[in-house]
Design a protein around this nucleic acid. Structure first.
Lengths: 236, 236
DNA sequence: TTGATTAATTGTACCGGTACAATTATAGTA
DNA sequence: TACTATAATTGTACCGGTACAATTAATCAA
């Protein structure tokens, strides 16, 4: 693990341990430098990271302060890691409906930047948070990148597996969201009525080299899905 | 304007002018250094900025590449600047329903971190994109920060005014989103039926010193609101 | 006490450098 | 040709420094 990531993690841990709240002040830069025995730029980098993640904000001439949003139950939209990292003490479970190797439809191939003759894994799940239906998901993984999947892996976190077992790291992702009404199939899985409201999010996950390797469509249960996005000012 | 912001702007301009697409390669770091006559770290900072905004991605040992999402009509969710900056050639108009100074309700005061006796501006608008109803918005501004508003300012971009005329800069914002059904009032303004689906986003805008100064509730027309979020890998 | 002026604090911009890891190109070998 | 080992390319981590702007604290005058 890189130094600045390590320091960021420790600072975040410190905030948690001390139960610091919005506006509480952290040690000044110079102290953090000597405390962790690194240069100013390394501390700065760790702080930038935490700032981007909405953990702190920095105010020149004043100090470094804790930033906390105050609504429990809202999940961060940046669950690039899957939701697992984001749930706190809530429990995530899954019903696996399908894990199979197929050929992509045209629009799936389009989104993954491949041809319709390339193999993909199709994964279909219903996911629950603390036993309540949370979302219905269909996702496609490039078989060239993810050569093997089974029901056990898929029932847990696919991203954990892909990262730790395959060494595949996500570079970036594009999420497309829109609101609509449930169709019959979706309503069935989510325990709702046809035409009930829903949030649909399509995400294309790219490797660090910019190539897509996962395209997923998630249909959320509108009553159990609340998201928070912590954004940083104009140019950040 | 800071050097690294300036360089970021020029690089972005270059991408636009050359009509570069996803995966196209940019000049290497060293060339950018000499081209703009700045140090490596300044170029790096400019590139980091563009990376966070989803404009490029960098690949060590390989180069700097253009990143483009490929769905027209999707609006970036990070319209911290208001939507104006985000519309391209589409036209944004507003019906101003209310601009008045009032005392906040309890939950508004709570979200703004003030007391119920402090003055706030209440602004109520229906907003249109290319003539189609886009959203219904009610927002509250701390009068201590925004001492004056009128219908003309509000019909245009409030953020433009607040920033350029008052010199107020936004530090960060917390957005809370959820899906639900329209009530009668909202349905009326949006030209939809009661109980139709909708996306609601509450946003609390903070100054650079961390103090909230604007709390807004936006109710989106579900057929005309599509959002894209470009996220950056694990640790961003 | 109040208000203005000055000084101390503290983060940010920018420089220029070394070392290194990931990728890509090249040369060498079978 | 195809595969392997090596070298060149290219961005990232980290160091340590100067100058400066924004905030806050201290000082002084009214």
């Amino acid at each position: 693990m890189l130094k600045y990531q390590q320091i960021a993690a420790e600072i975040e841990q410190y905030i948690t341990n001390q139960d610091l709240k919005q506006g509480d002040k952290l040690p000044v830069l110079e102290q953090l430098m000597s405390q962790y025995s690194v240069s100013k730029s390394t501390v700065t980098k760790a702080l930038e990271l935490l700032e981007r993640r909405g953990v702190i904000f920095q105010l020149r001439g004043s100090g470094i302060f804790v930033r906390r949003h105050n609504r429990p139950g809202y999940m961060s939209l940046f669950s690039t890691q899957g939701f697992k990292s984001n749930l706190g003490d809530r429990v995530l479970t899954s019903d696996v409906l399908d894990v199979s190797v197929t050929k992509p439809s045209e629009d799936v191939a389009e989104n993954l930047g491949i041809g319709v003759s390339d193999d993909v894994y199709r994964v279909e799940r219903v996911r629950y948070v603390d036993g309540e239906v949370f979302c219905y998901e269909v996702s496609y993984y490039l078989k060239a990148i993810v050569p093997y999947l089974n029901r056990e892996i898929v029932a847990d976190s696919i991203f954990d597996y892909v990262q730790s077992a395959l060494g595949v790291t996500i570079g970036f992702s594009d999420m497309y969201m829109q609101v609509g009404r449930l169709n019959k199939t979706e309503a069935g899985y989510l325990g709702l009525q046809t035409d009930d409201p829903t949030l649909r999010i399509e995400t294309i996950f790219h490797l660090t080299n910019g190539k897509p390797f996962d395209y997923s469509r998630i249909t959320y249960h509108y009553e159990h899905s609340q998201f928070v996005v912590q954004a940083n000012g104009p140019y950040m």
